[in-house]
Write a protein that binds this DNA or RNA. Sequence first.
DNA 1: CATACTGACTCAGAAACGTTCTT
DNA 2: TAAGAACGTTTCTGAGTCAGTAT
Length: 544
Amino acid sequence: HKGPYFAPLYEPLPDDVKFYYDGKPMKLNVATEEIATFYAKMLDHEYTTKEIFQNNFFYDWRKEMTSEERKKIKHLEKCDFKEMHKYFVDKNEARKALPKEEKQKLKEEADKIQEEYGYCILDGHREKIGNFKTEPPGLFRGRGDHPKMGMLKKRIMPEDVIINCSKDSQTPEPPSGHKWKEVRCDNTVTWLASWTENIQNSIKYIMLNPSSKLKGEKDWQKYEVARRLKGVVNKIRSQYRADWKSREMKKRQRSVALYFIDKLALRAGNEKEEGETADTVGCCSLRVEHIKLHPELDGQEHVVEFDFLGKDSIRYYNKVPVEKPVFKNLQLFMENKDPGDDLFDRLNTTVLNKHLQDLMDGLTAKVFRTYNASITLQEQLKALTDAEDNVAAKLLSYNRANRAVAILCNHQRATPKSFEKSMQNLQAKIDAKKEQLGEAQMELKRAKADLKAKKDVKSKAAVEKKKKLLEKIQEQLLKLNVQATDKEENKQIALGTSKLNYLDPRISVAWCKKFGVPIEKIYNKTQREKFAWAIDMADEDFEF
DNA sequence: CATACTGACTCAGAAACGTTCTT
DNA sequence: TAAGAACGTTTCTGAGTCAGTAT
């Protein structure tokens, strides 16, 4: 491979685009100016209204200033980035308004870079790389209440990059005048290049695209582990039920946690360093404040109310009736604890996974998510699909099955900005179609009357024609209604993550084959590339 | 054992981008 | 038929999981 493609260097602002401090124009040093542009570009983003973001930015920015600049620039409120902001907005619009040929030229240049840096040779095969570009410098955008939001993410230089390639291959050349941090030949890992980022001090990697053989095989393995769980899950379930009554507190906590992971598809929940990241939890890291116990709620017994922020600070809110021993155990775990205390104080992910490993080779907490997602899809497809339906209705069933999984895994999205409007538009279309339908019915009636009166060939043909038209309109209306239902149900649910990461693609491939739905209807080009192994492998009788 | 820390990998939603449909 | 809205696709990079090692 050729190593990473580096982010373009900073281009200083034209002289007429000014930064103002305390109302007066101020020429900034290039390095200072570059960081200022990061903030200026984000001016109409919500981030810049947040105090933590502002403080982190200002603190990091001042560190990079010259001492004269630092002496002068003391308050962010006195900084005026508006002109800079406008410059970037205009530039963006100008780029969008470029004539076709110019755009084509830019596209070709991008393709050339992709061609040159976007592929590698692995075991003699040319494979697509996933992310071959280094991340450009900018301001860190954490999710949720991240204590580090707004901090300066530094530019990655060749001197930061470790190259991994095989001994007998040609080592990629660093950009002229530069050196790599290190070149190594480690064939026990899959990454091609790596660097350490300065915000969390974690390593970033350049790895292969999901369509590659290597990633495909791993994906397949993942689902095979989940299928093995299918064979032992009943045993595991009776085991953890028995453990609810264990004399050991540790076992009780472990078995209740496992129940949650299995029933609710919660994530494992590693401990996190306090103050370094947003405060989010998974199963093992749940705190007392995250659940409420209701002996009775809305006519149901032993209801647990969950309310916590999970991965990416997505809220998990759910009221679940649980089995009585679970409820009793939870009461026990919460005794004499403060809201901020760990619910499972004798448990962590290491302990849990050690136990799972003993139950089944390769079993970890996340396998339950994969297993329950895939088995849910399979069951839902079976329950919802009607072989007599047309393709559109079958696709609605597929989406509904997919949606059941997304709900289980709590995959959410922000309601799209244009949702209300596009829903209205769709409704208007439906109304118009209904009117059209009424008209068509009238016309058919008239044609029939005509036929009765004349009984000639011509009017018979007219009746047939009107019948056809009516059918066509009815079908169109049905399709629109299906679309509307699908859209409404999907408002805040993200189907993509489960489709890409949790659902054994062979289930979907088999379903398509069985019900005569073209595979392109459920997987787009990229997805077909990623799931090529499954499309190859699965026939219509595949069972997860 | 408990704990801290590192490394490598999967999984996550937002935003940018490109294509298609409407007006 | 061109502009622009809507929608699907791709990119981006942050946030998890989990194993391994040192202390």
